[in-house]
Amino acid sequence: MSVIETKELYKIYHDGESEIRAVDGVNISITKGEFTAIVGPSGSGKTTLLNLIGGLDYPTKGEVLVKDNDLGKMSDKERIYFRLNHIGFVFQAYNLIPVLSAEENVGFVMELQGKSAKERHQRAVSLLKEVGLEGRENNRPSKLSGGQQQRVAVARALASKPSFVLADEPTANLDSHATSSLLSTMEKLNEKEGMTFVFSTHDPRVMKRARRIIEIEDGKIIRDYTKEVEDQ
């Protein structure tokens, strides 16, 4: 069973006379445990596609199914609730709530889920340890580097035990060292916890770390391939 499935997905913007096909008939299926990169130049439609998959945006046409649930049939409230329990998000930057500590940021979604303080604390601490931020639990985002902030965001994305994590250019604002370290963190969580990751990038170095690569251009998939194990 696929975790994510899109069927004839379109997102068309109208700019006066001209129309922009940001997502143009995309069919993809992603199964549990994948480590997939959506790759393409700037303006190719990566963000739009991820937003549609994450239920943050409405397609012009087509369907998005997450574990066979049709996002298009949900009310706004149901979608938010669905995202809370099924989708983890990592954005390009400024992911975190500035007034909350690293631990509280990770615990936030669990609090929204109604988890007890004890459970939140335990899971937040262990996730922060997993992303290599042991000892930084009480730091607010402003006291963390960009790379550390992104790792907190990854920990938060996992906190709700989602079906998959969507990351839109998570390394775009990071230097190469932080980029590599963030990817290692994601890889480790993918392997250890079997978490499904879908991330976008236009950086070839990041692309190389993915197992499956979906290349898009002008909203269309031009290549979709899984690397051989020995390639990694």
């Binding site: 994450g54 943050l56 938010i80 609730y81 995202r83 998000f89 400024y94 936030f108 929204l112 709700s160």
Partner: peptide
């Protein structure tokens, strides 16, 4: 605005 967008994305209801 962006922060509220992220809060909605990660599952905080509008009413909240």
């Amino acid at each position: 605005v962006r922060e509220f967008g992220i809060l909605m994305a990660i599952g905080m209801q509008r009413a909240k």
